[in-house]
């Protein structure tokens, strides 16, 4: 199904042959319109400074009235489809706007009009193949180029003769431009030590999403749970993973020997790469994977990154138990949690 055949078919002319419909030519089938033929325009030459092109007044079915009629009916049928679909839209709206039905009807309403227009343009409109001069829109003549340069230079002269004022204006403008940025600084507070701290701290209990404190025995071997500092759910840097490694041999630096409770360790859930929760835990390899960019951390080796773009280990949270036996933090994280930032160092 071709909607448009080679437009040259209707009335291709030899390249560069010129000619074409002169103003005095006879109109074809009454379709080529020239008001002078109807005695309603002054019989004077058209302005020739506007490139108007040479008309190709032939149209697809001009010699086949039968097919032209069919084309007309076909277009009408398209628009009837659109009309019916439009009524359908009203009906569907009243009956609850079921999504698929609505979508089909909206699509039909649009497509009916669109296909009809395309068919009309293809089958019943002349003039698809017109040649005209591009005119002189991409370059002016030399006289105009001189004129603009002269106008500008004339105005520039008295300004350029005061270089001090000219340069001062530039400098003042620059400084004011920077001053004008200050309102933007009100958009937010100064970056503070906030980025270095979380709601964890000495003796803060680790609680579940629904606020329950946990005992070490609540976490089975190979169990993993996201915990929060009690009363600090809203802290986006605080979510922490409690993992029970059981008797799997894990290495942590000597300075952190009392940071775990038996096999239970706590690491930040916030990926050090781009801040997504790195929570895909593989108990066979004891690796944590971040679903955003596939950074992989080895829990047995201090959560150091073993694959992907993460540049640093997940920070470890020192934990112990309080007098009631619940898991608490020994302190806040000892390094900033999450992705790097300029002042981090």
């Amino acid at each position: 199904m071709t909607i448009l055949d080679d437009p040259g078919q209707g009335g291709s002319r030899e390249p560069g042959a010129g000619g074409g419909a002169e103003p005095g030519d006879q109109p074809t089938e009454g379709l080529a319109f020239d008001p002078r033929h109807f005695g309603i325009a002054p019989d004077e030459p058209w302005p020739d400074d506007v490139p108007r092109g040479q008309d190709d007044s032939h149209w697809r079915f001009e010699h086949d009235p039968g097919r032209a009629r069919i084309a007309e009916l076909r277009i009408a049928a398209c628009w009837i489809v659109s009309l019916l679909a439009s009524i359908g839209i009203a009906v569907v709206y009243v009956t609850g706007a079921q999504n698929q039905a609505s979508g089909i009807l909206w699509a039909l309403a649009f497509l009916g009009i669109g296909v009809g227009l395309i068919l009309w343009a293809r089958d019943l409109l002349p003039g698809h193949d017109v040649i005209a001069s591009r005119g002189r829109h991409d370059a002016s003549d030399e006289g105009n180029r001189w004129a603009v340069a002269e106008s500008f230079a004339r105005g520039l002269e008295p300004i350029a003769r005061r270089p001090f004022l000219f340069k001062l204006l530039g400098a003042v403008g620059g400084v004011f431009g920077i001053a004008a940025l200050f309102p933007l600084a009100s958009l937010g507070p100064r970056p503070d030590r906030n980025l270095y701290h979380t709601k964890w701290g000495r003796g803060v209990r680790a609680v579940t999403e629904d606020g329950r404190p946990l005992r070490p025995s609540d976490l089975p071997v190979n169990g993993i749970l996201t915990v929060f500092p009690e009363g600090g759910m809203e802290d986006a840097l605080a979510p922490t993973l409690l993992i029970n490694l059981g008797d799997a041999p894990f290495e942590i630096p000597p300075s952190r020997t009392n940071w775990n409770i038996g096999g239970i360790v706590a690491f930040s859930k916030i990926c050090t790469h781009a801040g997504c929760p790195a929570g895909l835990y593989n108990v066979q390899t004891h690796q944590l994977v971040c679903p955003c960019h596939q950074s992989t951390f080895d829990v047995l080796e201090d959560c150091k990154p073993v694959f992907g773009p993460a540049p640093r280990s997940l920070p470890q949270l020192p934990i112990t138990t309080d007098t009631e036996g619940y898991i608490v933090a020994r302190s806040d994280y000892t390094q900033p949690v999450g992705p790097g930032f300029w002042n981090r160092g």
Binding site: S102, G103, A109, F110, L111, G114
Partner: peptide, 17 residues
């Protein structure tokens, strides 16, 4: 104009289906 309608039609077909 016809193409604009067809573009809209195809997008609404996707939106519905």
């Amino acid at each position: 104009g016809g193409l604009a309608m067809i573009v809209s039609g195809v997008i609404f077909a996707l939106a519905g289906l």
